[in-house]
Nucleic acid binder design. Sequence first.
DNA 1: CTGATATCATTTGCATACGAATGAATTTGC
DNA 2: GCAAATTCATTCGTATGCAAATGATATCAG
Lengths: 158, 158
Amino acid sequence: MGRPQMSGEDNLLRLVEAEDGDENDYHLQDQVGFILRKAHQRHVSIFASHIGDLTPPQFAALAKLYDIGETSQNQLGTLIAMDAATVKGVIDRLKARGLVEVSKHEVDKRRLLVNLTSEGREAIERLIPLARAITEETLAPLTAKETATFLRLLAKLA
Amino acid sequence: MGRPQMSGEDNLLRLVEAEDGDENDYHLQDQVGFILRKAHQRHVSIFASHIGDLTPPQFAALAKLYDIGETSQNQLGTLIAMDAATVKGVIDRLKARGLVEVSKHEVDKRRLLVNLTSEGREAIERLIPLARAITEETLAPLTAKETATFLRLLAKLA
DNA sequence: CTGATATCATTTGCATACGAATGAATTTGC
DNA sequence: GCAAATTCATTCGTATGCAAATGATATCAG
């Protein structure tokens, strides 16, 4: 439908173009952005099937706090690749569930410090093994060697 | 911070575990889901810098309609990997901008047919070269060989 | 010291994304 | 041929994700 009135001459032209590598067709399903979006969707779906009561961004916030301890909301956002508006929503929801607590920075009054509660610490310790299973299932279509290659190249793109 | 009271004995245990491949640390930044999310974010950002007045999902809808012609909203959603609720919003916005038009299916009265307007056709023809540039810029950190490998493996995951 | 800049957090508005529920229409199974 | 199951579309609620604007605080430059 993209070439409504294709004639024999057009087909000839197309062959010439193909030889030149100047392919005129555009296939959405071959574009890196589209496949990236689908791969991400698949991962989120696998995540949800293992960890139903937390989203990947919420898990990321907990895991990072567990890793580095108390930080400012803004700094946390940088570490887990969320802008200020997004991280605020994530922290608000974790706070409402008692998994994190916030406090004011004593010196710099602009900053909002965020930390795990003991409940949040228990939660992330319980969830990390599930997260490993999620990673494993996400990468299951690849062999061990392919996985290593894929992660290396993906990291270069991210 | 994840291991608050680590002792010398714990360090010994850790070495043993490392030899077993049973690594206890969990590094968010190495997890495929997290990197996938970041790579996707980067692509969306590159897309926006080239095509400011359309989102990747909106572009996908136009590109697929250009490729296959009129279809039902549901079928379009399947082809561009969007659930029914999401595709409805995307089509509503494209319709409001005059890029697509909808009509009722004559035989199956449940279906809503979607098609490009002439304005939508002009838009997608104008945008496809930009989309090629977006793909190119997204993949710029990789060599040609790496790109081929990456796309092959990514497709296996998606 | 102070005006200009920069940083941190919040708010608003818009756009995916998806589960769940609903209603209308079609297809299936018996 | 008809009840049950399925399909298509819509709506609602919740959760990212980001741009832009705003207010409070901190830092910098002269």
